[in-house]
Simulated assay, not measured.
Amino acid sequence: MYAIQMKDYGDVDVLVSVQVPLPKLKPKQVLLKQHAVAIDPYDVGFRAGLKGREKVPPLVAGSSAAGEIVQVGEAVTEFKVGERVAASPHLRCYAEYVAIGQSQLAHIPQNVTYQQAVACALGVQTAYQIVHDELKLTEKERVLIHGGSGSVGFAAIQFARQYHPKEIYTTASGKGAIFLRQFDKQLQVIDYRGEDFKNVVPPVDKIIDTIGGQNLKDSLAVLKPNGKLISTVSDDADTRVQLYFLKSKGKKLEAVLNQVSTGSFYVKIAESAPFTVTNLRKFHQTKHAVGKLVLTFD
C-alpha cells in the first residue's frame, strides 16, 4: 500500500513516499481503508522531535483516521465490514490502510462527511474530554481558553458554551481573532498581539491552556485561588494545574460526531487536498490556519 513514511525526526524533508505491506490485524482490530486524514499540531511536533524520540524511525506517523472498514479481527464485536468509522490512534495514519483497535473507533453518522469526522478525531476529542470530563464548568463561573482559533481551543469554546458559563474569554490573533468575533459576538476575544490578557481578563475560575511555557505561568495570575487550569502542553508545581493528554476512546468521539450530525457542533475545514507527500509537507509547514487541514484519499 501507499504510505508516507517519516525516515527520521526533523524538518518536512523527512517525509517520503513509500510502499509498505498491509497491516496485520490483531484479534480486536479492524482494517480501515482511509478516506481522510487530518494534520494536527501533535503530528507536526512529533515529526520535529518535540514530542519525544522514543519511537525509532523509519515509521508512519499521523494520528487521525476516517474511512471504511474492509476487514475485522476475530474478536471484534461492535463493528462490521462496510461501516464508516473515525478514530485517533497513535501514529500509523499517513497510509492508505490502518489497523485500529475497536475501543478507539466511532461510527460516523450518515450526514457527517469523512473530512468532518477526521477533523474531530484528535483535537476536538481532546477538548470534549477536557470540558465534559475534567473542567466541570458552572453557570456562575468565568473561563479563559487560550488559542481559541486552534483545534482544541475552538472546540473547547463550543463545548464550554453548552454549560452557559458567566463569561468566556479567549486569546487569538489576526484572522483567528476576526473569525472568533464573527462566530460568537458574546465571546470576549483578546488579540494577544495588541493586548496583554493579564490586563484584560478578570479573575477566572477555569483556564484551558494550549500554549504552555510562560503563557501558563502568566495565566496563574488571573486564576482564582481555588481555580483549575488544564494544559495540553505544560505542567507546573502549582497544585491548580493539571497536564492533560488525550485518552482516545471511540465512545467519546462518537458523542462528538453526534453533535456534528445534529448541528450542535461546528467543524471548520481550512483547506483540503489529495493525500500526497507534497501536500503533507505543505500542510506541516502551514502556520496559523483557522480550521483543520485535511488530506483526502478519494
Rank of each mutant, 00 (worst) to 15 (best):
R142P: 01
I211K: 07
A289W: 10
A127R: 11
T232W: 03
L91N: 04
K33C: 02
K217C: 02
Q116H: 05
R161N: 05
L216C: 10
R281T: 01
V201I: 13
I207G: 07
L105P: 01
V30P: 04
V260W: 05
D218W: 11
A99S: 12
S173P: 06
I168Y: 04
Y266E: 12
G212Q: 05
A3Q: 11
V85G: 02
V85A: 09
E68A: 06
L137G: 07
H90M: 13
S264Y: 05
H132Q: 13
V204L: 07
G147M: 10
V20N: 08
D235M: 11
H284W: 06
I178A: 14
T276N: 00
V112W: 01
E134C: 08
N226C: 07
F183C: 05
K224N: 04
I269T: 14
G45E: 04
D43A: 09
K51P: 02
S264N: 13
N199I: 08
L91I: 08
A160F: 09
L144N: 00
E139Q: 15
K136W: 05
N279H: 15
H288D: 15
L293I: 09
H284G: 03
T171H: 06
R92W: 04
A172G: 10
N258P: 00
G148R: 13
D8A: 15
S88L: 06
G73T: 09
A3Y: 00
D218N: 14
Y163M: 11
K206D: 05
P202L: 11
P203K: 15
P203G: 12
R240D: 01
A61I: 11
V118T: 15
A3E: 04
V124I: 15
S248G: 00
V72N: 04
V44S: 07
E139W: 10
T239D: 12
G67R: 03
C93N: 02
F275V: 02
S17K: 14
A95D: 00
Q29E: 15
D196I: 13
V124R: 00
N258A: 11
